[in-house]
Design a protein around this nucleic acid. Structure first.
Lengths: 72, 72
DNA sequence: TAGTAGGTTATCATATATGACAACAATGAA
DNA sequence: TTCATTGTTGTCATATATGATAACCTACTA
């Protein structure tokens, strides 16, 4: 799978989980200590996040990191 | 959990899976298209890998990405 | 001994993730 | 309309991941 596809899959999964919790990018980003613009980029799959960034997001969403990346 | 601890956990998990397959860092790195020194850094937890780097390693190890990061 | 394999570590250049900021668009409410 | 909210996008500086190279160490083997 291409790098871009990985990023898009992860971004979509984060968006799905965020929306299921009914919170905005703004709020989720703040919980992770960064700005909404950066969260938008991650959800759009326009960046290749590090494991620690995904960890922070998973903590904010109250899920395991592995739930953000259920891809083969 | 601190960033460093995440990195160490992931590194340990990669090492465990690599050794269970009986291959060297050299070989695993080559399968991922990079050098053994870089794999050593990752296994030692001295870097904060991106999701795509973990994806390449997971493919080489024939496991899902989520198996590399079974941490809360 | 010398040579090989496996692993570690330092260093370098380059690419890019991170984080902040601002401008913008779309939506909905007052 | 005006205003606030939400999300997108571009840009910037800084930090750091990536990938390559080389030196080094240990253990093993010829």
């Amino acid at each position: 799978m291409k790098k871009e596809q990985i990023q898009i899959n992860v971004g979509n999964r984060i968006r799905q989980l965020r929306e299921s919790k009914g919170i905005s990018q703004q709020v989720l980003a703040a919980m992770c200590n960064f700005e909404k613009g950066n969260m938008s980029r991650i959800e759009a799959g326009r960046t290749n996040p590090t494991i620690y960034t995904l960890y922070k997001i998973s903590q904010a969403l109250e899920v395991k990191i592995s739930e953000l990346i259920d891809i083969d």
